[in-house]
Simulated scan of single mutants.
Amino acid sequence: MSRFIVFDVETPNRYNNRMSAIGIAVVEDGMIVNEYYSLVDPEQPFDYFNTRLTGISEETVIGAPTFPELWEKIEPLFSSGLLVAHNAVFDMGVLKKCLRDYGIDWRPYVRYICTVQMGRRLLPGVSHKLNDMCDHYGICLNHHQADSDSRACAEILLHYLDEGADVRQYIRTCSLNK
């Protein structure tokens, strides 16, 4: 495994079934080789909590692509490597719901790695919240900004790989059909 597509999403409301932003960092051969960021028009109302947390609102996403428009651009990237996220159950769940709700047929399942789950095995006894792991490794973080969060997750992954982690034992599968 030498190519990882590390991503993070922000959501507009408590339903966690749409994206308001996505950040992607591509890790290849032990380094971050590409990054991508986009706001996303979720076509849903924003909750005050989410806007306060992320700084993204209805006004912020005016003119941003909807998920189907964005997917045309990012699908080749998502198809080009193993997906990775910090607390991947959340990000994979949002991706799955977006694909399902917009009727986008991508794959029946996708393989991914969760850096929280990796960290719990590799570094037991410490907090694996993204901001705590960034403090641990000295990684800059502008938390709850999808581009910063995806880059931070990629850097955490690189630390785990440098420390000798074998990613094969952390690969999980998410069904996109259910």
Rank of each mutant, 00 (worst) to 15 (best):
Y37P: 12
S38K: 03
L39W: 00
V40A: 03
V40T: 10
E43W: 08
P45F: 12
D47M: 00
D47L: 00
F49Y: 11
N50I: 08
N50F: 04
R52V: 14
L53P: 00
G55N: 10
S57T: 10
V61I: 12
A64D: 09
F67S: 07
L70Y: 01
L70I: 10
E72S: 15
E72P: 08
E72D: 13
K73E: 15
K73A: 12
I74H: 09
I74Q: 10
I74A: 07
E75H: 06
P76I: 07
F78Y: 09
F78T: 04
S79Y: 04
L83H: 07
V84Y: 03
V84W: 00
A85M: 05
H86R: 05
H86T: 02
A88G: 05
V89N: 09
V89R: 09
F90D: 11
D91M: 05
L95W: 06
L95G: 11
L95C: 13
K97M: 12
C98S: 13
L99M: 05
R100Y: 11
R100E: 11
D101G: 03
D101F: 12
Y102H: 13
Y102I: 12
D105S: 13
D105G: 08
D105A: 10
R107F: 08
R107W: 05
Y109P: 00
V110S: 06
Q117I: 09
Q117H: 11
M118N: 09
G119C: 04
R121A: 08
R121Q: 13
L122M: 08
P124G: 07
P124D: 07
G125R: 12
G125S: 05
G125M: 07
V126I: 15
S127H: 10
S127A: 05
K129M: 03
L130K: 01
L130T: 03
N131I: 08
N131A: 14
N131G: 11
D132W: 05
D132K: 14
H136I: 11
Y137W: 11
C140P: 15
C140N: 15
L141S: 02
H144C: 04
H144R: 00
H144T: 04
Q145E: 15
A146G: 04
A146N: 00
D147C: 13
A152D: 01
A152R: 06
A154C: 09
A154M: 07
I156D: 00
I156G: 01
I156Y: 03
